[in-house]
Design a protein around this nucleic acid. Structure first.
Length: 444
DNA sequence: TCTGGGGTCCTAGGACCC
DNA sequence: TCTGGGGTCCTAGGACCC
């Protein structure tokens, strides 16, 4: 069955209903989403925390990024800064964790592998979400199949999930939302089975649609579109005029015309690494260490995806919330030849920092971006650089990467990254990484 | 006192070319 | 004297996602 692009659809004279029918028959997407993922990972090894309010914090213990249902009902908002909610947290004995990304990515890997065993046509959309395309498989009963995924994944990994089924990705996100929020669906919602879908859509705000946030919501509200039902039944040309191709695509997807398919994994186009400092920093030396560290981590990522970058951007900033005079600046340098060598990029990063560092400010954050990324194997050989040096550097990087991978930590690093690391991010409430040998849970 | 981090895609506008 | 316009590429910024 041909996929009809939004453009082709817009250009066609055929009645929409013909397309809708064809598309409904042609594709079935399942969106699988882990419930309160970070919180669920923490609970996995701490069953004593079931049914208790838990929150997980962002880097530097700054904001709330994951909440258990109990924490949600206390009114703790997603993204809320921790210090504003100290009272609620204290009065209700809310359990707090710093984010433990090593643990979460290990658990995520388990969940995704389980999903892949059901359907190879998978797009891992984020650490806790994946789309499956089910219509290419021979499945007798799609609902039974989804129910099976639902129970097996929870059983195998211990992580609760929700599943939304629909003929487009946008609709499957909505179906997933319904599965998650309405207990009568028992965690799995097939949108095509719902008889009174209009009644449900009339009760959902446009901001509940994937791709519609504040700005877009305001634009839609201004033309009297408030609910998903309103949006779905509005005028395509008007939507195109007001929201551009992105909005038009959403409109079509809501109407069952699939414009977005499963995406293959592609190499990152930029790799960035930035952190707020645990405490404000004023000295060049400390910030220089942090920058060297960010650069080294980003280069390791670059090598892991077998790519090279042409240049680096370095930036530093004072806190945007500070009452004092603010300063932020960035500087970039392009290399003569693309590289993935940490030492080379660290040197350039420090040149950048010298250009932008100003005395007299308390810095809050620093970061780097590697840009113009291309695949390693299509790298052009330089005429100037010595090939022997190049080979030696590659070997050195491989030794560093292998050792750090084996030890699952940074046992080999550059002196410029520093040892004291006064700038390091705050992570006071971190759980053990239960999935690694040296931190396995103990049974008493 | 204390407010995260890493991405993607799209668009508008400028520079440049013929 | 009359002073175009279309195409392409690049970049910065906006909007959104989790």
């Amino acid at each position: 069955m041909n996929n009809i692009s939004a453009k082709e659809y817009a250009a066609s004279n055929l009645a929409p209903s013909i397309f809708y029918k064809k598309e409904v028959e042609s594709k079935i997407f399942a969106l699988i989403d882990c419930n309160n993922f970070y919180v669920s990972c923490e609970r996995l090894f701490r069953p004593d925390l079931n049914n208790k309010p838990i929150i997980v914090l962002s880097n530097n213990d700054g904001c709330i990024v994951s909440r258990s249902n109990e924490a949600k009902s206390l009114g703790l908002p997603m993204g809320g800064p921790l210090f504003k909610y100290k009272n609620i947290i204290k009065n209700n004995n809310v359990n707090i964790f710093s984010s433990n990304y090593k643990l979460y990515s290990d658990i995520s890997y388990r969940v995704m592998n389980s999903l892949r065993s059901f359907c190879p046509d998978i797009e891992i959309y984020s650490i806790d979400e994946a789309f499956l395309r089910l219509d290419k498989m021979s499945i007798c009963n799609i609902n039974n199949f989804a129910n099976n995924i639902y129970s097996k994944v929870s059983k195998w990994t211990g992580i609760p999930i929700s599943i939304g089924l629909a003929p487009t990705k946008t609709l499957s996100k909505i179906a997933n939302n319904i599965a998650k929020t309405r207990s009568e669906f028992l965690g799995v919602c097939n949108l095509s089975d719902i008889k009174n879908i209009d009644a449900i859509f009339k009760n959902m705000k446009v901001s509940e649609i994937w791709g519609v946030a504040k700005k877009t919501e305001a634009k839609l509200n201004s033309i009297n579109i408030f609910t998903i039902y309103d949006f779905k039944n509005s005028n395509q040309k008007l939507i195109r005029k007001i929201l551009g191709v992105v909005g038009e695509r959403i409109f079509l997807e809501l109407n069952g015309v699939s414009c977005l398919d499963i995406q293959e994994v592609s190499v990152r186009k930029h790799i960035s690494y930035s952190r707020s400092f645990g405490e404000k920093q004023t000295k060049f030396e400390e910030i220089s260490q942090a920058i060297a560290n960010h650069t080294s981590c980003a280069c390791a990522k670059l090598r892991r995806q077998k790519t090279v970058a042409k240049g680096i951007i370095v930036y530093i900033a004072t806190s945007p919330y500070s009452q004092k005079e603010n300063y932020s600046n960035s500087y970039s340098i392009a290399l003569d030849n693309p590289s993935s060598n940490s030492a080379e990029f660290i040197k350039k990063a420090q040149e950048c920092l010298k250009k932008i560092f100003r005395h007299g400010y308390s810095y809050h954050k620093s970061g780097i971006v590697l840009f113009d990324i291309s695949e390693e194997n299509i790298l052009q050989e330089s005429f100037l650089e010595s090939k022997i040096d190049d080979e030696r550097n590659k070997k050195l990087m491989k030794i560093i990467d292998d050792s750090n991978y084996k030890s699952k930590s940074q046992i080999l690093f550059f002196a410029s990254q520093g040892i004291q690391r006064k700038w390091q991010t705050k992570k006071d409430l971190c759980s053990p990484c239960y999935t690694r040998w040296e931190e396995l849970a103990t049974v008493k």
